[in-house]
């Protein structure tokens, strides 16, 4: 019995807790991608860099607050800086839309052109971020590091294995739940939110109903900027802020959006967790779990790891290919990606 509990604690500690946090971050990222796809009808390759830019703005404001001696008690100061970071990211997104995307909307460019344009935007953001804060790795997390420490858990339960929950992990899940709740309330209950869904559903009919497309586009960018900043900051808090990491996050985020069904907010959330847990379960070494569960004579001598963690990006890629082959509309989508 204790063996079983120990095995479960290992799984909780190394898969469930990190998976929930990482899944929340991916879900928030995928929501941004799926909103832009639903309303503006293109795959925004620059979304990873939007996250990086938002996280950078938040980091700058965090430094400012820290230098003024303002903290957030046990929680990271970055949470206080978040609204300012979101504001700056909103300005960046709106400026980009005016300077770049607005033109392609007017000439009714094809989705392929939009993708290339967003690649260009990605490189510009990328350069901008390096220009402002440079490429190095930074840790902006402060406050209390753990909600539950492994040793405290061991002492409390008397088990061999410890369960640690980082503050940033709990903050990730908490913020994601809050943001998703707000987003769904907005989309399903408010007039403006419904007009966004209507525009995404049937652009021509939305125009015939008197819905102003420019306003819908504006609101979409504001929400996208907020979601991207939140996702980028939470990821940066949980791991560390390294600008080029966000470009690599683009693949799992797109995989999440496509698994759930491009354009479906619910699907983006489900997809985020599918990808996060797939990555973790496939790259986890099950040796210690099996050692508890199997009789001693059968205890594994190898790590029992399906895939090295270096290949975790391949997991998203494999899932992406499988979904596109078997169910191109994704889990909740009506449109093909």
């Amino acid at each position: 019995m204790t063996d079983l509990l120990n095995a479960l604690v290992i799984i909780a500690n190394f898969i469930i807790v990190p998976g929930l946090a990482y899944g929340s971050q991916l879900a928030l990222g995928a929501l941004g991608v799926t909103l832009v796809f639903g309303v503006l009808r293109f795959s925004n390759i620059a979304h990873g860099e939007t996250m990086a830019a938002g996280a950078m703005f938040t980091m700058l404001f965090t430094w400012l607050l820290q230098s003024m001696g303002i903290g957030f008690g046990p929680l990271p100061t970055a949470l206080l800086a978040l609204p300012f970071g979101i504001g700056a990211a909103m300005v960046l997104c709106l400026a980009t839309d005016r300077a770049v995307y607005g033109y392609y909307r007017r000439v009714r460019a094809s989705p392929a052109i939009y993708i290339i344009v967003s690649v260009g935007v990605m490189f510009v953001y990328n350069g901008l971020i390096r220009f402002v804060v440079g490429p190095q790795d930074r840790v902006i997390t402060d406050g209390q590091r753990f909600i539950m420490k492994a040793r405290a858990f061991k002492q409390a339960t008397g088990l061999n294995e410890g369960l640690a929950i980082k503050t940033t992990q709990a903050v990730s899940v908490g913020c994601a739940v809050l943001a998703v709740g707000l987003l769904f309330w907005f989309l399903n209950r408010t007039r403006t939110g419904k007009s966004m869904r209507a525009y995404s559903d049937n652009e021509d009919l939305a125009l015939l109903s008197g819905i102003n497309p420019e306003r819908v586009v504006l609101i979409t960018w504001l929400i996208t900027a907020a979601l991207a900043t939140l996702a980028g900051t939470l990821y940066g808090l949980d791991k560390s802020f390294r600008p080029f990491v966000y470009m690599q996050l683009l693949l799992p985020i797109f995989a999440a959006a496509i698994v759930g069904g491009f354009g479906s907010p619910l699907g983006a959330i489900a997809g985020g967790f599918v990808i996060a847990f797939s990555e973790l379960t496939v790259t986890f070494a099950y040796k210690r779990v099996l050692a508890y569960l199997l009789p001693d004579s059968m205890a594994p001598s190898t790590l029992v790891q399906l895939l090295s963690t270096d290949y975790k990006i391949a997991v998203s890629f494999a899932i992406l290919v499988i979904v596109l082959l078997i169910k191109p509309t994704g889990l909740f989508g009506q449109r093909t990606a």
Partner: peptide
């Protein structure tokens, strides 16, 4: 394509009155 397929009947009418 004269209805918003993903929205409820009531929401379709609300959007009509936008």
């Amino acid at each position: 394509n004269n209805v918003f397929t993903g929205m409820t009947v009531e929401e379709n009418l609300e959007m009509g009155a936008f």
